[in-house]
C-alpha cells in the first residue's frame, strides 16, 4: 500500500534524508501528538503493531524508551525497543533527538545504527508543516541499516520503484 501523500523523501546527502507533511491541525496539537506517550501510542507503530511500553522524560537530556510490538511476516511476534535522547527542544517549534536501538532495560545497543532526527513544526495558514530530517550517524551505520532492512518496515512490501531503479534494472 502506498502512502496516500505524494511527498517524496528528499535525499540530502548519502546519509541524510528529509520527509515533510502538512497536517490540517494547529501546531500545538501536532506538537502534543509528537511529545506525549498517550498520543504517540496511537500512531507511532506500524499497522497491526502496538506500543505497549512508552516511558518519556521530555526535556533536554531526557529519554524516550519505548517498545513496538507486532507480527513478523512468518507470524511470530516481534518486539523492537528504542531509546531516543532529546538533545534540543524549542517548544513548539523544534526537536532534535538521537534515535537508538535499545533493549527492554533501556540499554542502548552499541553496535546498532544511530540516527539523528531534527523535527521542525511550522504553522502554515492554520495548518502545520512538519519536516523530519534524518541523519544516519555514519556510513557504517547506514550500511548496517540497509543490510538489516527496515526493521519495522519488514512486514510491508514496497510498491513502485522510481525512475532510477527502473533505469538500473534495464
Amino acid at each position: 500500500m502506498m502512502s496516500r501523500a505524494t511527498q517524496k523523501m528528499e535525499r540530502i546527502s548519502e546519509r541524510e534524508f528529509a520527509v515533510s507533511r502538512t497536517f490540517a491541525a494547529p501546531r500545538d496539537l501536532v506538537w502534543q501528538a509528537w511529545t506525549q506517550c498517550e498520543h504517540l501510542q496511537q500512531w507511532w507503530a506500524p499497522e497491526g503493531w502496538s506500543v505497549p511500553v512508552c516511558k518519556m522524560d521530555f526535556r533536554v537530556g531526557g529519554t524516550w524508551h519505548y517498545c513496538m510490538k507486532g507480527p513478523m511476516p512468518d507470524g511470530s511476534e516481534a518486539e523492537s525497543w528504542g531509546l531516543t535522547v532529546y538533545q534540543e527542544i524549542v517548544e513548539p517549534e523544534l526537536i532534535v533527538a538521537l534515535d537508538q536501538f535499545a533493549d527492554a532495560a533501556g540499554n542502548v545497543s552499541p553496535e546498532m545504527p544511530k540516527m539523528l532526527n531534527t523535527i521542525t513544526f511550522t504553522p502554515v495558514d492554520g495548518r502545520t508543516k512538519v519536516t523530519n530530517h534524518f541523519e544516519v550517524a555514519s556510513a557504517d551505520d547506514l550500511e548496517t541499516l540497509i543490510n538489516m532492512g527496515m526493521e519495522e518496515g519488514m512486514t510491508q512490501s514496497w510498491d513502485q520503484l522510481d525512475a532510477l531503479l527502473t533505469q538500473l534494472q534495464k
Binding site: 500500500m1 502512502s3 501523500a5 496511537q42 500512531w43 518496515g153 520503484l161 531503479l165
Partner: peptide
C-alpha cells in the same frame, strides 16, 4: 535505493496514521 524507498514508505504510512 530499496532501503531509501522502504524508509520513505515507512514514514509515509506513519504520517498517514498521525494525520
Amino acid at each position: 535505493h530499496d532501503w531509501v524507498q522502504q524508509f520513505e514508505q515507512f514514514w509515509g504510512r506513519r504520517l498517514d496514521r498521525l494525520d
